[in-house]
Design a binder for these strands. Structure first.
Lengths: 144, 144
DNA sequence: TTCCGTGCAAAAATTTTGCATCATC
DNA sequence: GATGATGCAAAATTTTTGCACGGAA
């Protein structure tokens, strides 16, 4: 597991390698994502980035996230509601999802599935597990 | 595993129980979903239903799918792209997803994960596994 | 100086809602 | 006949795109 600083250095290295320019917006967007552990929506990322760069545009956030996803630095996750969410944790991990409020948490599973390399003609390369349930808050609001 | 006919009867029973009216549109939408094994988008379901009921409205499809999801007859799945997809297979099963074209197939896994009932404060009740890879078609178009 | 990236605004795509009418029960 | 469901259109939400300008390399 790398820390934020190492991840940012890696980001800069990767951008230079590929020939992407390192703009303040790009850095800010990636930084926001590194700091958030709640799989924010594009809108939420945008609001956060605006605190540092008030003139940033939502379109830039969309474009940047797409770019970051292409080079493998962030993952697009999509579980709930109508908007895409992003995650800077690209290591092997799984998700715990509240069926009521949609809250998503990362989780490590020690159990491993052994997935055949070939399944129904698909050449497989990874998997992820979504575990559904009720988060602590929604359990106590159950009666409401 | 029930067949289509049994599922339709169950649908009718369930609707009556809850007090939902059985309209031709509802039946048609559920039927379309029962017959499709590719997790169609709302738009795709709409196009299919229109073949039987040319005057059906997209809004009805949206509302009906929401209703069917609430009563547990269909599942909303969301993996790829920007639109919601639906699945009438509500039994325990998992998904095989092509990273390139977004095709989704159901898959049975004989391996089981044993998920603790309590994880990070969440009361868990189910899980699903998404396996990612390349579908046969995208493998052969790889060079393109 | 050269391009890529950005901001802005408009367009496209997706989903929800209000309301009058219709059809099931 | 009562009530819930539908169709239509408009609105709201989410995402993408075109284009001129500005800034990183």
């Amino acid at each position: 597991m790398q820390n934020t600083h190492e991840k940012l250095e890696f980001f800069v290295k990767k951008c230079k390698e590929i020939g992407l320019k390192i703009t303040p917006q790009r850095l800010a967007i990636y930084e926001v994502l590194l700091k958030s552990y709640n799989h924010p929506t594009v809108e939420e990322i945008y609001e956060e980035v605006k605190k540092m760069y008030p003139y940033v545009s939502l379109a830039t956030v969309y474009r940047t996230l797409e770019t970051l996803e292409k080079i493998g630095l962030v993952k697009r996750v999509c579980f709930w509601g109508n908007s895409a969410r992003y995650d800077a944790n690209t290591s092997e991990h799984h998700h715990l999802i509240c069926k009521k409020c949609g809250r998503i948490e990362d989780i490590d599973l020690d159990q491993k599935l052994s997935i055949p390399e070939n399944l129904q003609g698909f050449k497989t390369d990874s998997y992820s597990v979504n575990i559904y349930g009720l988060c602590p808050k929604c359990q106590s609001n159950q009666q409401v």
